[in-house]
Design a protein around this nucleic acid. Sequence first.
DNA 1: TTGTAGGCGTTATCAC
DNA 2: GTGATAACGCCTACAA
Lengths: 336, 336
Amino acid sequence: MDIVNIKKLAKELNISTSTISRAFNGSPDINKDTKERILAFAKEHNFLPNHYASNLRDKKTKTLAVIIPEIANDFFSQAINGIEEVARKKGFYILLYRTDDVFEKEVSFVNYLNNGKVDGIIMSVSGEANDHNYLRQLESKNVPVVFFDRVYEDIDAAKVTTNDYDSSFDATEHLLQTGCRRIAYLVVNKSISIGQVRMQGYMDALKKHNVVFDDELVIDCSNDEKVNYKILTKVLQEIKPDGIFSSVERLAFATYYVCNDLAIDIPKQLKIVSFSSLGIAPLLSPALSTITQPAYEMGIKAANLLFEALEHKAATNHKRHVVLKSKLFIRRSSGE
Amino acid sequence: MDIVNIKKLAKELNISTSTISRAFNGSPDINKDTKERILAFAKEHNFLPNHYASNLRDKKTKTLAVIIPEIANDFFSQAINGIEEVARKKGFYILLYRTDDVFEKEVSFVNYLNNGKVDGIIMSVSGEANDHNYLRQLESKNVPVVFFDRVYEDIDAAKVTTNDYDSSFDATEHLLQTGCRRIAYLVVNKSISIGQVRMQGYMDALKKHNVVFDDELVIDCSNDEKVNYKILTKVLQEIKPDGIFSSVERLAFATYYVCNDLAIDIPKQLKIVSFSSLGIAPLLSPALSTITQPAYEMGIKAANLLFEALEHKAATNHKRHVVLKSKLFIRRSSGE
DNA sequence: TTGTAGGCGTTATCAC
DNA sequence: GTGATAACGCCTACAA
């Protein structure tokens, strides 16, 4: 017997489809025995209500989209874990999308979602200096959005970030205090707000310590490892910084590789601090000093904000911006 | 104007819903001008066909589920990247689910999918010695399944694995050749097939070199880092192996931490080789010798197998098992 | 407590 | 090349 829908089940059981529906939806208006009989029979025949049909009826997808620049990255994968944790408790499922930091992919995916595909969206964005109207359209369709880590300031959505300015200031100051005077700032995308905020912390720390900001020391890197290797090789050979403040984990690793090949001693000749969520930073050679963001907690918080918006549609007008604290871990790469 | 569905669009344009539908589905039976007019108008009003309604009609979800034990793990996140890559090209989306290596979660999620929620499933499994009937039910509903890395041998589905036996044999032999005689085998879940296959390679290498297998040297670890730390501390203090062959990346890291704290010198006092997809293994202190699986390629392959099954439902009867090759990288943790 | 009927938004079939 | 209509599987008034 190949029972596939509520109708056939109804026929088999000599019962109406509505009663069956009630059995599956925790309705109080149903006899306990009837319900048990239905559920038992359904289970036996391996039946479950079709999610798409239910959704078509009541416009609840129980699904949320997570849009991030990359997956194979400790920060993001930990954040996903946090989001998943919350989503699961709520009985929600996750549609995952990776933008590779390409703005167009972000736009096309968000547009695709713009038709009742998901109940809400959690994202870390990829393109700053662009038109963000595709996001405003979601708002008009009541699909709440929560940004985490990388946000668009011009969009009125809930946001979860970390105290990037302070961390960057502290990390730079730390490098200065260990004696660095020519600190390079490594960044992938200067234009996105997070890159700017972090750079501001860096600049202000320099200023406080009367070190002149040198434009040459702001190193714009790429997403391509080989390109970064070349860029950094050139920087270490020609610009010769004595400190590195990396706003992106990947760039710190690239620096390590270059130092290995150029036989530059970390931390003697070059001190390094980097934003990083790598759990095994202490195991690197030398142990990497990190600004570690609470990635998992950020995921949890972002998901909670989303569910708040979902659950009290009304109170959604005051969008919240939650700022969590990162932690600076000083290790051998910037110490003695 | 708040156009939300094909009907209202039709009214606005003085055109039938069928024509609009045709415009969106690349039907040849439509006047080019009409089509352009419709698409332009739709775009202007931010309309897209509702995915759930379409699905209800033609039973194509354009979505596939990816079920894995963990996300924050280089192997799996790289594999997801590969899967995503292929899925995207096919216009498919990904529903991600993490089992935390808990068999019950795997079952409950798969059961949830058992109602037309997705077109296919790619998974790396979590519970070996169990009843896998929940998976057989998918088969009857024509939801193809592809396993990767961790598979159930008793389920007739396409599989993508690596040459685990050979790699394990080679890694163990390498340790023996560097002089190790008491090599501990670290494993998380002895019972799953992948743990067994890797252990067999280990045992056979021992035998070939006339080293007696010692049960005491098979170290059953957990998913909890603190517990592992304790277990490994005890092992290094009491059982005192001179080599470690770790079937799971995480356990190698734990060993590093323990060695740091016990002041055990790697590789002088203890040599280590581990399965690992960590890109920065060379940057560890000391650089970690790894068996590196082609995670990304495995994801690609798994997704391709799934699409094959999806596209030629007929030819699905001979399920394929693809075996890719891992690579042994010998670095300082097991050398001089 | 249970049943009937209409509709969610789309598309395939058939007619024109 | 276009339009009317039924159906996909489910849920919720409303009626009984």
